[in-house]
Amino acid sequence: MHARAVAATTTALLGAAALLIPAPAALAGAVQPTVIAHRGASAYAPENTLAAVDKAAELGIHWVENDVQRTKDGELVVLHDDNLKRTTDVEQLFPDRAPWKVKDFTAAEIARLDAGSWFDPTYADARVPTLKQYMDRVELNHQKLLLEIKNPELYPGIEKETLKLLGNEGWLDRPHLASRLIVQSFSADSVRTVHELKPAVKTGFLGTPPVSELSRYATFADQINPSYGSVSTGYVASVHAVEGPHGRPLEVFVWTVNDANTARLVAGYGVDGIITNTPDVVRDALPAQ
């Protein structure tokens, strides 16, 4: 969800969710869901930038989510869209290069772009980070990463390249694999490829597969990560009833929840994680451990 849509979405959801929110006592005995900062703390800083990572850390949020794509010359960069138009000044710097696809620009060209002014002029110095730069910052902040391989059909081999970079950066050692890294995608084939290349990596499938198909996804995915509006208590329970590739129940991380009422609603469903642009709002809405 776009960061600027947070306010409108919050207003719309408050009324719709109010009657469905579990009472605090219903949540008190449950394990508090993990809170994941969507594209960093993207309600407060330009998405997928180092500033958004730092803002999440400033708010005390341990998990950040990002999106990975590949440049023309093979550099992995952190950006949500497959083109540069929405979140950079690429139209001004390269007016004759429409439709401004990430895969048509070199890493050096992308490094020149202003990736912050679209959000707020005070972030004019923000740049599209390489995945290496992003990993360095996450490590510096002692944070954890939910990494999404975006549009893998556009970038053949991106799974292997992503895992290689993660390995080079020390993120495939036992401590990171145990509790600090999850790789996800909307592409089941991509998630399956990651699992086959590096079975120890925790993986997530973005979507809401039918309950009848969960056992198939459980052969390569540790998580089923749907839009919050597509789940219920029954669906979450059905996911939890299936054992994943590492011998543990499948988990559910939902996206993108940006207000307190909806956070309490989905927590009542029993979800394991909540992906949000406003991680402080979601965290503060949940009962303390």
Score class of each variant (00 low, 15 high):
Asn168Thr: 13
Val252Met: 10
Thr9Lys: 15
Val183Trp: 02
Leu19Gly: 09
Leu19Ala: 09
Glu65Phe: 05
Ala260Val: 01
Asp222Phe: 09
Gln32Ser: 15
Val242Pro: 02
Ala28Arg: 14
Gly29Trp: 06
Gln143Glu: 07
Asn83Arg: 06
Ala241Cys: 11
Asp104Lys: 10
Tyr228Thr: 04
Trp118Arg: 01
Leu154Gly: 02
Ala37Pro: 10
Ala7Arg: 06
Thr10Ala: 13
Pro24His: 08
Ile21Asp: 08
Ser230Phe: 13
His2Cys: 08
Leu59Cys: 07
Ala52Ser: 13
Glu58Cys: 14
Asp120Ser: 07
Glu65Ile: 06
Gly268Asp: 08
Pro95Asp: 10
Val128Tyr: 11
Leu154Cys: 12
Gly74Met: 12
Gly268Ile: 13
Gln143Leu: 01
Leu154Thr: 11
Tyr228Gln: 05
Pro156Leu: 00
Lys160Glu: 06
Met1Cys: 08
Gly74Glu: 10
Ala51Ile: 14
Glu109Ser: 02
Pro129His: 03
Ala56Arg: 00
Gly273Asn: 09
Ile182Val: 06
Val35Trp: 00
Tyr269Val: 10
Gly273Tyr: 00
Phe119Thr: 01
His246Leu: 10
Leu79Met: 11
Glu47Val: 06
Ala3His: 14
Arg4His: 09
Asp96Glu: 11
Asn225Phe: 12
Thr71Tyr: 05
Val31Ile: 15
Asp114Cys: 01
Leu50Thr: 01
Lys150Asn: 07
Val138Pro: 02
Leu154Gln: 11
Gln184Met: 06
Thr9Gln: 14
Leu13Lys: 14
Tyr217Arg: 04
Ala285Tyr: 02
Pro46Ala: 07
Ala267Lys: 01
Asp67Met: 02
Ala25Phe: 03
Pro121Asp: 08
Thr122Val: 15
Leu59Ala: 09
Arg248Ser: 11
Val211Tyr: 15
Leu265Arg: 00
Asp54Gln: 13
Leu20Trp: 14
Ala23Cys: 13
Phe205Arg: 04
Val231Gln: 01
Lys55Pro: 10
Lys150Gln: 03
Leu19Met: 11
Val77Ser: 00
Tyr235Cys: 02
Tyr155Gln: 12
Glu169His: 05
Thr106Asn: 07
Asp284Phe: 08
Ser232Lys: 05
Gly270Ala: 05
Gly270Met: 02
Thr278Trp: 00
His176Thr: 15
Asp89Arg: 04
Arg86Thr: 07
Pro24Lys: 00
His38Lys: 12
Val239Gln: 00
Phe186Asp: 07
Ala43Trp: 06
Ser42His: 02
Lys72Cys: 04
Gly157Glu: 07
Asp284Gln: 05
Ala188Cys: 13
Leu172Lys: 02
Val78Asp: 08
Val211Ile: 12
Trp118Ile: 03
Gly273Asp: 09
Ile224Gly: 00
Thr233Asp: 15
Asp96Tyr: 00
Val77Ile: 09
Val194Tyr: 01
Leu50Asn: 04
Ala52Pro: 14
Tyr269Lys: 05
Leu13Tyr: 05
Ala26Met: 09
Asn258Arg: 10
Leu50Trp: 04
Ala111Tyr: 03
Arg283His: 11
Asn151Leu: 15
Val90Pro: 10
Ile182Cys: 04
Val242Arg: 08
Leu59Val: 03
Val242Asn: 07
Tyr269Leu: 15
Lys164Trp: 13
Asp280Leu: 10
Tyr269Ala: 02
Val239Gly: 05
Asp272Asn: 03
Gly234Ser: 11
Val128Lys: 03
Tyr123Leu: 02
Leu13Ala: 12
